[in-house]
Amino acid sequence: MRRPPSIKQLEAFLVIEALRNVTSAAARLHVSQPALSRTLRLMEEDLETPLFKRSTRVVELTAAGTALLPVAKRLVGEYYESFGDLGNVLDGQAGRVVLAGLPSVVVALMPGALRGLAAIAPHVEVKVLGLPEQQVLAAVRDGTADFAVVTQPAAAEWFRFEKILVDEYVLLCRRDDPLARKKVLPWTTLASRPFIGFTHASSVRPTLDRAFIQMGLTVNVKYEVDHLSLIGAMVAAGLGLSVLPRLALALIDCAELASIALQGRVVERVIGSLQRVDTALSPAAAKLREALFEEVHSTQGRE
């Protein structure tokens, strides 16, 4: 029964065919002539047919050798191409990464991070999932996502969280509102105007509710919505004021809006990278995470 030759044997066959001389081929392959002759003999025994016609000076292909030649070239080429692809994956130069995150965070941070990744690893494919907070955590926990960018959750044993930045909350008003001329405003400004807030499904709502209670501040929540873009449109329509994390401004049309810093009590959210403690990131995912941190640090350096 014929046995297929090894890649090493096919390589030897191709070098012998190219040089038409066993001694020269042995020198090219950095082996002894007897060792190469033995490799060829074993290959012919496995295939149960001679591959070369031997003479004192040169060797020529037999009919079987001629038939094997294109097959050997293809197999050896595919072998090294495949290992080249594997090397790219192991080096983080190729592969696929799935990242999950809050929509306001991924819209604000990921375009720059992906641009940085493309510059150093152009063959890495990335899927970005913009999800509510609990779905982001679930995606990482069940392995759907390699890692996430999310607000810092309550500590748990299954994940590791590393801070990337602190995102402050700002007041949102119309650009032509007299308030827009101020660089900073007190939180009490909110008490004098209708307030446009988030529904309880939003991760922003409990943060603001807690802050209002701690400050003893009563706001007139006239509208509750569940989409950032709608909040922007309603503020632009003059229906009231709102408070958003600064990164969330990337999700709304700010052409007619102004964002003002709030003084007094500091209200902010910590944004960071979250991954499972029992699963190491792939090289490509690690490169994306590194590009994300570099994007944030370079952006903060320009501000």
Rank of each mutant, 00 (worst) to 15 (best):
A119H: 14
R265A: 12
V266L: 14
T299A: 15
R246E: 14
R41F: 11
I260P: 08
A26Q: 09
G272S: 05
D91Q: 13
A285G: 11
E224F: 08
A248N: 08
V140H: 01
Y79V: 09
S242F: 00
L217K: 04
A121N: 03
E294A: 14
A258L: 04
D209E: 14
L14T: 07
A94I: 04
I7W: 00
E303Q: 15
E268M: 03
A119C: 10
G95R: 01
S104K: 01
G264N: 06
P50K: 07
L251H: 04
T144G: 06
P178S: 03
A248W: 01
D85Y: 07
G238M: 01
V97H: 01
E11K: 09
P122L: 06
E168I: 12
V107D: 02
V277F: 05
L51T: 01
A280W: 02
A67Y: 06
A138E: 10
P206W: 09
F198N: 02
A291P: 11
E48L: 10
V170M: 09
G238Y: 04
A233M: 08
A248E: 04
T56W: 15
R205M: 08
K53A: 11
A237D: 11
P34E: 03
L171M: 13
R3G: 10
A148H: 00
A72G: 11
V58I: 15
A156Q: 12
G112I: 01
R38D: 15
P111C: 07
S24W: 12
L29D: 03
L14Q: 05
K163P: 07
E17D: 12
L274T: 00
R193D: 02
L241Q: 00
L190C: 05
K287T: 10
S55F: 05
G130Y: 04
V166F: 02
Y80L: 08
G232I: 05
A148V: 04
A156W: 04
Y169M: 11
V128E: 04
A72L: 06
A18Q: 15
P50W: 10
A25N: 06
P194V: 05
G65P: 01
G272K: 00
P103W: 06
R54M: 10
P50T: 11
A35S: 15
G65H: 00
E17G: 03
V15L: 05
F52L: 07
